[in-house]
Nucleic acid binder design. Sequence first.
DNA 1: ATGCGAATTAGACACAGTCCAACTCGCTGG
DNA 2: CCAGCGAGTTGGACTGTGTCTAATTCGCAT
Lengths: 140, 140
Amino acid sequence: MDLTQYTRDNLAEVLRRHGINPTHQRIEIAHAMYSRHEHLSADQVLASVNERHPETSRATVYNTLNLFVEKRLIREVIVDPNRVFYDPNTAPHYHLYDVRTGRLTDIDASGIRVSGLPRLPAGVVTEGMDIILRVRSAGD
Amino acid sequence: MDLTQYTRDNLAEVLRRHGINPTHQRIEIAHAMYSRHEHLSADQVLASVNERHPETSRATVYNTLNLFVEKRLIREVIVDPNRVFYDPNTAPHYHLYDVRTGRLTDIDASGIRVSGLPRLPAGVVTEGMDIILRVRSAGD
DNA sequence: ATGCGAATTAGACACAGTCCAACTCGCTGG
DNA sequence: CCAGCGAGTTGGACTGTGTCTAATTCGCAT
């Protein structure tokens, strides 16, 4: 099966593989996340989904995005004090955030090496490391 | 002048040096930030200030914290989707965030080296780099 | 067709943070 | 000592994101 095309059938299969019951709404939300290769806020996902499948509720979008995060289908990116962004790219990578425009871009993690991090206390498990390069582009 | 003691006189001087007119409220807010060596949310600052100087308004606390950030007296730490933390430590350092407890700890930046970061496009200026090590401590 | 549990829904709610117009404070000149 | 001025502060209304809840609907198995 060709999973490089984000057809709804393929997405249903992806959801199943992550232990998620693939409902219409969930498939539409997954489609919104994967078809654009961008970081979307919950509101943007809601708008995108409602273009095709009107009357999907805000509650469902929030529920579903949280479910996807929990099941490791997507990642939260916490970079903007006003809203959470969701990132369909789960490969190791970091972020470039333009504080002027709010634009968020991926930085591939291969090639980046971080050394000298402290040893963690016993019983503490790393969930992940975020690196955010905050930049400001030339203004208008 | 001994600035290792965060007396109100010393704090007034620090504010002046950063180009901030030192009012009563601003000094109290600076005191709240510096006397505890912790990361505080706006609400925690408000509570702390009101212990000593009751009737300092929420608006003033937000105005002042934003002013302090703008004047580089403190830093914003965006790590928790629910609220912004403010960090009185402006020396280079990174953060350890316990997603279970919400506890935020400093990691000294000396000793940490990051290599392989991409070159930035022309006209783009680095504002800073955040490194957040997300961990989960052993649960109850 | 019927019944069931899971998912979805609308709307109320919670909460951080901002905005605004009125007020007050601390200073400076008379 | 008072008046006047501008900066700073204030309470309260407002905004936007995200959560909660109780009722409904959906898809599926019998």
